[in-house]
Each structure stands twice: as structure tokens, then as C-alpha cells.
Amino acid sequence: MTAAARAAGVRTRALRLDPRAKLTMLAVANVLMFLHAGPAAQSLAVVLFSLPLLFGGKAAAGVRMLAVYGVLCAVEWASALGVDRLPWLHIAGATAAGVCMMMPCLTAGMAMFATTRPGDMVCAMRRMRAPDALVIPVVVMMRFFPTIRHDYRLIRQSLRLRGFAGGGMALARHPLRSLEYILVPLLMNAANVARDLTVAGLARGLGAPGEPTSMVELRMRAVDWLAVALSLAPLAVAAVTG
């Protein structure tokens, strides 16, 4: 079902909200968590914030967030029933209630992370007048994550080739040595990549004065404003129910 949903999402132009709308959701989720919002506001927030995932071509992730929330609520409810007889159920109840409290934040974060393309994110940051000191490191980071994973695999392979067991056991037996063998090549390569990226970036006018043009055009459409308005609803519910 998930593969079909994803394919359908791609074909029928999945809904892509403006990153700023999703940022509003994150802010609302944080306020809810700070205020210890009641179950009504909390569950409404989780459902609303999973909508960008469900309609944005990441239905599997959205369903997973909702399912986790459902299980947590069930655990909390069940442990509250038996807690008078079995005090240790407090541990399960407190854990479930605590993670429930974080679920609006985690769902909004997942929506932000899974449905936002790097280009959109950068455009939104520039539009919000973030300084170069912030935008450039973020761009470089997103570009560099896949490289780290690739390098790490190559390092493990070459360690194995030279007869150092690359498994978790070796890491546990010689933590310091294994760490050194993995970190030093990673850092060495990071330094080289930084140099190459600097040359490539400067050649393309990175950090040149004036506002850079963008491949992505971001506009707050009607859908985005609707999303902003909807994401404020849990706050209203929290204000009413206390």
C-alpha cells in the first residue's frame, strides 16, 4: 500500500506546503508542549501535523506517526487503570505520557524533514533574511550528509580488507583504536571536501555581494495560508479546554 501511495503521490503532484507554513506548525507544537496542552489539543495537533505527510507523498511516515501516537495513548490509558494496584505501572505511564507530550513536535518535525526539499529550505531561509553565516553552513551540511555515509562505508570496507574486524564487537573491544581508525580518515576527507567546496563555491559566486537569484520560487499560496490557519486550531482548543 505504501509503495502505491508513494507512486500516486508522485504522479498526482503531491501537496508541497511552503516551509514557512511548516515552521508555523513547529512553533505551535512547541507552544503546546510548553503549556502541557490537554489530550484534545494534543491529539488534534498530531492529526493536523501529520496531514502534510499524508498528502505530501509520505503517507507511510504519516501513518506511522499516527500509529505510534495511538499506541502511546493506549499504554497511558491502560497503565492509569491498573496503577493503584501495581505502582510500577507508573514507569510505563510516565514514559507514555512524556512521549505523547512530545508527539506534536516530533510529527511537525517529521513533516518538515520528510517533505521539504533542500532548495525550498534554503530559499525560505534567505527569504527570512537569515545571514550568510547561517545559510552557507546549512547548505554545505545538506550537501555533505550523503558524502559522510559513503565515506564511512568505504572506510569500514578498507578496514576489513586490512584485517581489522569492522563489526560492533571490535568497536566494543578497542573503542579508542576503532574510533581513531574511523574518525581520522573521515576528518581528513572532510578537510579535503571543504577545500574543494570552497573553490567550487567561490567560482560560482557564493558569498558575492547582492541577493542571489534562486531556482525555486516560493510563494505563500491559499493552501499555505489555510495550513497556517489550521495549525493554530490546537492552540484555540488548548485555550478553551485548558
Partner: peptide, 15 residues
């Protein structure tokens, strides 16, 4: 700080 520093910061922040 200049652009090369920002790139260094980005690379090491990723790690």
C-alpha cells in the same frame, strides 16, 4: 569569518 570558514563550519557541523 569569510566564505571558506562558513564552508568549513558546514562540513564539520555535518560530522
Amino acid at each position: 569569518l569569510a566564505v571558506p570558514d562558513y564552508i568549513n563550519i558546514g562540513v564539520f557541523s555535518a560530522l
